[in-house]
Amino acid sequence: MRIDRAALSRFAALRMRAPGPATAMQQGDRRSPFRGRGLEFADYRPYDAGDDLRLVDWNVYFRLGIALVRQFSEERSLSVKICLDVSASMGFGDPKKSDHAAQLAATIAMISLGHRDPVVMACFGSEDRGLRARAVNLDGLPELLHMLERTEPPQSGGRGNAHTQLVTHLGGSRCDRLVFISDLLHEDAERQALLRMCASACPRPLVLHVLSPDELEPDLEDVERVIDSETGEALMLRDGRDANAEYARALASWLGTIEESCRALGIQYVRCDTRKRAADIVQGELYRKQVVEHIAGGI
């Protein structure tokens, strides 16, 4: 997949907005539910043997005769997981959906790592076992980009078990922000399973639905039979002027179903047309939906 690296430098003023307390193990600058060392006083607790005596509030002890230990809120980083669909269907469109998705993933990784939010990036959907890479700061960004660039969706053939691969990638640990990038061209049951998986992986997952003109406005002129790039299923197209209108209605219904499912599962849903640049989507759609925010605040 191709990535425009020069375009990544434009997002220094953005950072990922935390949907809740950050839970990464890495120290950061985001509020977390953990108590420990920090600058912001959180609470008192009774002294236990072994506690650091420096944390005992001696004023309270001399006044009340009770040894209480001061607790501080720890600041952690936002753990971000990016799951990128690299199935064969992502290899279509002009530009390719996979390239567009990779640019989106790289942009989000850049924004996250720029503020020391650790990023785990995983690719799924191909017959391969799937690739996975992790970075905790900008030093790890080249590794993520390298992984994206050496991954290509297959020309055709099976798409593997996307659900299993996603379980592999997401299972075992939660994250603070899941970004799921796919064209969602799966059968209904499989798609629902994937979305539920995403919903369970983190409190407020984000689905970036990448669609190309091949899906939105397909050019079926002079097309008699279509073949599925992933399953090899062949369909004879019906003739007639109503076909385009019927397809448009089916597409609208399909998109509506997905959006409704995401809303029901608490998933943020953003449709990404490949004709629109990734940078514009990040600074436009994702900013309006508060997926990213400006470091100086504001809307």
Binding site: G91, D183, E224, D228, S229, E233
Partner: peptide, 13 residues
């Protein structure tokens, strides 16, 4: 023939 990303949406026509 034309290879498409998916025939899911094209089944309707």
């Amino acid at each position: 023939d034309k290879t498409v990303p998916s025939v899911i949406l094209l089944r309707i026509i």
